[in-house]
Design a protein around this nucleic acid. Sequence first.
DNA 1: GTAGGGTTAG
Length: 705
Amino acid sequence: MARFPTLSILIKTSSSSSYINLSTIFAKRLFNPTRGNATMGTKSRNSTIFYHLKNKRLDEARRCFNEIRTPDVSLYTMMIAGYCQIDRIDEALQMFYKMPVRDVVSWNSMMKGCIYCGYLEIARKLFDEMPHRTVVSWTTMISGFSKFGQIEMAKEFFSKMPSKDTAAWNSMIFCYCSYGRVEDAYNLFRNMPSRNVISWTTMISGLDQTGQTAKALALFQEMRSSGIEPTSSTFAIVLTACANILALDRGIQLHTHILKLGYELDPFISSTLITFYARCKQINDSVKVFQENSNTNVVMWTALVSGYGLSFDHEQALAVFRDMINVGVVPNQCTFTCALNSCSVLEALDKGKVIHSKAMKIGLGLDVFVANSLIAMYSKCGNIDDGVIIFNKMRERNLVSWNSVIVGCAQHGRAEMAFQIFNQMEQANIQPDEITFVSLLTACSHSTLLEKGRFFFELLKNHPGIQLKLEHYACMVDILGRSGKLEESEEFIKKMPIEPNSLIWLTLLGACKVHLNAEIATRAAEFALKLDPNCSAPYILLSNLYSSLNKWKDASRIRRVMKEKGIIKQPGRSWVTLRGSRHEFLSGDISHPLIKKIHQKLEWLNGKLKELGYVPDPSYALHDVEDEQKEVMLSYHSERLAIGFGLISTVEGSTLRVMKNLRVCGDCHSVIKLISKIVSREIIVRDSCRFHHFRDGNCSCGDHW
DNA sequence: GTAGGGTTAG
């Protein structure tokens, strides 16, 4: 990096008619410091200050500033702005009050600085104190109120200001848009005396951000028709709108337009294009945009990481993250969020841990966004304890932090901990939202806590500002059903103020299976199938229920109907991730290279199981339609193959993590409890519903699953 | 190079 500004800046000295390069002056000062101050002209001293201000080196700027006997108003103003930009508001204010003369620009600057540093009240005081106000003073205050959500104050100032220019109108439009009041914004937009490209761009963005993307694009067309040229900001916004509704062709047209105007290397445009193509499932075009821009920055890299994530290629997302680190680009909060999200989806605990340590090194380990992602990552990778540790360490938390840790506890069967954290949340005066309640109710259903469930549902119903959603009802149906209150659960569905979906009925059906109630189950299955005729779950659940009741004829009738309708059950799959690679097993799978050793291990385990008095429950073997055809024995269910593989491939005593796409079968659940005792290891199984922690012959779900 | 209005990654 050059220490001084390059040759582009030339100044004319007073003593000579020739032009002298700035760096020569700096060099002179550097090599001859004793002469420097005395011989330096005001102009060059100002240049030095500008240079330091630009690089945010305020102390050095101040040293030069102090050498000037009578700095003019503008120099003071620049120093003030410089202090504010690096959050040194006290020094800015001191300097402001020390100035011999203040003009309207310095007042406005000081107000802006206060707002930037979060001191709206001081800005307001300055506004009231200042001798003369211009339209800029008023507009500065309007954006200040807007920034802190004081819309009514912004409105009041806007109506009171003696004259308004376009920028003033724009700031009020932006204020409304920022808080979702697009109608109000649109009224102003239509009624303002003259509109510039910023007015149009602001309005387009406001419409898009409130989900009115079609209107936003129409407004863009109208803007074009009225002869206004878009700027790079406009393009960024309109491209985002296209991405939101996956309007690929429209976006490609914009891309052409962007190339014509030469905006393609603008970093804002590049990153927007990357995301646009990724969302439209054209990741190769994202890569092209990235590669064609030689000035990549952290946002563009992040856009590519997230782009691969949007394309469900999380392996590649993490590869891009690694490349980025290798070329020396420093990730920020957003990059970590994307990369950790990919780890969560891949359930790649090891990679997640590596990224966690990177974040800590950079000092972002407890950043609220990064920590939230870490909580989710640890929880989804089966390690809720580390998620809770991070949550407890956080100094700043937002609603997402609370929700992430509560949902994590719920999914891992830590109901008590979820409730405790919720209590803390209430004590901290943090308002819960829909997701908080889904998590709490999930915790109740996973541990079958009927009274607690009723309590939270009542709390939710009476909570102002929270709308009850299908998920809440589904949880309550589950809680009632699992508690054996099948009739009440069915009544509850019938009294729901919103239309139940198939999931609601399936939930009731699942509970009927647990409590072997064929009558309600039949009705629930009918409703579920009416709403989603091609779903296999009602057939499977009903057939399994009949099998458990030894009603073999009914069971096979259901399976026959299912076959006739061509409805296929999703095959059961289980997998273990070891050193970054995934080992997946289907039921009765013999394709794994270590299958012989796996079978040996399982046979050895079967012997030990028998010694413990375990008798297989044959009814579970009949539950699986596909298994029946393949003559697969219970002991070769996919989860057991995965566990057998895990046991022979990992260190004795270490925790084993297994993932499954469906719910763990009842027989396997009993067996895995015993296996955890036999091999003295913790086995964590994540099935389609939740996490099971098997340890010493027990499971964290307490058999409520 | 003294002040106000719109933009990118999640």
